[in-house]
């Protein structure tokens, strides 16, 4: 059987909210090392992956590896029944067709349990090659969210370039053009408020803003985000979930024919 108890249950809610619009039906792979998911979006343009480590849970038990087929929209509806300070416990039998979720209030004076019907989902695992990044940027996740949101009001696509000057995001549309350049900083009070840029070679890539905006739904999970750019390859946008794991998004570029 599988059983996992998460004191900070709101993280599960935030994680599901961060991926449910891109991926609707997904498999969660459970093993004694934790919970993993990898899924393409419906249009097969991006790949979403998360990992929740067993040691990030208050209690984690998995007797043998399980695959849980989950409709994320339905799971999100169930998680709406949990309070923001609730402790969440998930349980599934080895051959069961439901995932039981239990929400306990902080004072443990209110307990909700819900059974979510599981489904059989065919999915393919993609191999993500080890990439030698051209440029790696770490920035506040609120900054990333603002850049992709602001540029979406100008155009549908963004050119992202890394040069000695910094990381430049450029959008072009019917109403005009906009450029946002981020330079490396070191003066912020907190380390995570700084922008860090590590560039190995200049790089310029074009992406659909719609997806980059969707990735920003993970903003509540982490105060920082890492953006990895590699020549002619998908961009990788990483949110580390403190003491628990990560959610990573990969988006294929737009390429001139």
């Amino acid at each position: 059987m599988f059983e996992a108890r998460l004191i900070q249950g709101s993280l599960l809610k935030k994680l599901v909210d961060a991926i449910k619009e891109l991926c609707t039906e997904v498999n969660w792979d459970i093993s004694n090392s934790g919970i993993n998911m990898q899924s393409m979006d419906g249009s097969h343009v991006c790949l979403v992956a998360f990992n929740l480590r067993a040691d990030g849970f208050d209690h984690f038990r998995c007797d043998r590896p399980l695959t849980l087929g989950i409709n994320l929209g339905n799971l999100a509806k169930i998680l709406k029944c949990s309070g923001s300070n609730d402790i969440i416990t998930m349980k599934a039998d080895d051959n069961g067709d439901t995932l039981t979720l239990m929400f306990e209030s902080e004072k443990q004076d209110r307990i909700t349990d819900v059974d979510l019907k599981l489904m059989s989902i065919e999915s393919e695992h993609l191999g993500i090659p080890d990439q030698d990044y051209s440029a790696e940027t770490s920035m506040p996740s609120s900054e990333y969210q603002r850049i992709v949101r602001d540029l979406s009001s100008i155009g549908d696509t963004v050119n992202i370039s890394a040069t000695k000057e910094g990381i430049k995001f450029s959008a072009m549309g019917d109403i005009g053009t906009a450029n946002i350049t981020l330079r490396q900083t070191s003066s912020a009070d907190k380390e995570e408020e700084n922008v860090k840029i590590e560039m190995k070679e200049p790089v310029l890539l074009t992406f659909a803003l719609r997806y980059l905006n969707n990735f920003a739904k993970a903003t509540p999970l982490s105060s920082t985000v890492q953006v990895f750019l590699t020549k002619d390859l998908p961009v990788q946008v990483n949110y580390n979930i403190q003491d628990l794991g990560y959610v990573k998004y990969y988006l294929a570029p737009k390429i001139e024919e």
């Binding site: 993609l126 659909a208 294929a252 024919e257």
Partner: peptide
């Protein structure tokens, strides 16, 4: 602005 590539053109099936 270029053609949107699919993610599977970069990451192969395992």
């Amino acid at each position: 602005a270029g053609a949107q590539k699919g993610i599977m053109s970069f990451f192969g099936k395992k």
